[in-house]
């Protein structure tokens, strides 16, 4: 062994920004996350050139996976042109030379905040969800050490109790997004804050999903063909948002998750949250023939 064999020429930044050692740690933790689905694995979480809470966890995963042949899609709230999605996409392509796309079907890596695209993901695609708060027990136990012990003991009684109390008080479960869900029958996870609409897309999916919280330094995963079951009582079924009957005012699409746009003079219009799906529908209406993939929901009904 020589000194020269242990050194490399100096470079201002590594390929993909993260240095080799940071990437190795991400790899080691991703392996464990996939091996124990839904279990939060702690990791060091390096600082990256965007602020904590702005997708640094997802970004570290994507930076580890990306290569020049990757095609990345970045969305925020379902939209590719959201400012933070644009910022992350620009950074990713700049440091990796990877291609970028808005088309869900063309992407190999999809980094998302708060949504899963409506077109079904395939086995050759990886979904990376940005996670602000990885801990489903936070509302009942803010102390992370105590919450960790509860996961170790599969002690989810207090979580069930809050859901029960919501039903008693409000007549229904009041959980909005981030609905606590049992993964592989063992660990309850907080599915980033995707809406309830999107949670069934993780259940027995064809694709791998990696969820990463950079600020809280926790990474977890849902492998393909893995059970993801929202916590529900036998007699109170899981309810997705009541969007099945809404129509997008711009694209004419019906039966997908919608953004509500308040209107002057009262009332609301809606537009489809998966912006690229809307773009495709508009292009189709204008006579083009963009490929629209099979969608998880058809006419507002989840397909199994």
């Amino acid at each position: 062994m020589t000194l020269a064999s242990l050194t490399r020429p100096w470079r201002a930044f590594s390929y993909g920004f993260l240095d080799a050692s940071a990437k190795r740690e991400m790899r080691r933790k991703m392996i464990k996350a996939v091996a124990v689905p839904g279990c939060q694995m702690p990791y060091a979480s390096r600082e990256v050139p965007i602020a904590r809470g702005w997708g640094t966890g997802g970004l570290q995963v994507t930076l580890t996976l990306v290569n020049p042949k990757s095609v990345v899609k970045v969305i925020d709230q379902g939209a590719d042109d959201s400012v933070n999605a644009a910022s992350i996409r620009r950074f990713l392509t700049r440091v990796s030379g990877a291609g970028a796309t808005n088309d869900t079907l063309a992407a190999s890596l999809i980094q998302s905040r708060h949504r899963i695209p409506e077109e079904k993901l395939r086995a050759d695609q990886i979904l990376i969800l940005q996670v602000p708060n990885p801990e489903p027990l936070r509302p009942v136990e803010p102390n992370m050490s105590a919450a960790r012990q509860m996961h170790a003991d599969a002690d989810y009684g207090r979580l069930w109790l809050t859901l029960y109390e919501q039903i008693v008080r409000s007549g229904r479960v009041m959980q909005g997004a981030s609905y606590p869900s049992m993964v592989n029958g063992r660990h309850v996870m907080s599915p980033s804050p995707i809406p309830r609409w999107d949670v069934p897309k993780l259940h027995m999916a064809d694709h791998l999903t990696i969820l990463s919280a950079g600020r809280e330094k926790r990474i977890f995963a849902v492998p393909p063909h893995t059970r993801v079951e929202p916590l529900v009582f036998d007699d109170v079924p899981y309810r997705v948002e009541d969007h099945a009957g809404l129509t997008c005012a711009r694209s004419g699409l019906t039966g997908y998750f919608m953004n509500e746009i308040p209107q002057d003079g009262g009332g609301s219009a809606h537009e489809v949250s998966d912006s690229e799906l809307g773009v495709k529908a508009i292009r189709r209406a204008e006579g083009e023939d963009p490929e629209i993939g099979a969608t998880w929901y058809v006419d507002g009904e989840m397909q199994r």
């Binding site: 993909g16 190795r24 290569n67 700049r94 440091v95």
Partner: peptide, 17 residues
């Protein structure tokens, strides 16, 4: 972040890993 104006290329080790 102008240190690397060209499209970044992974070195052999990075590509392999």
């Amino acid at each position: 972040l102008t240190a690397d104006p060209q499209l970044p290329e992974p070195d052999a080790a990075e590509a392999r890993d």
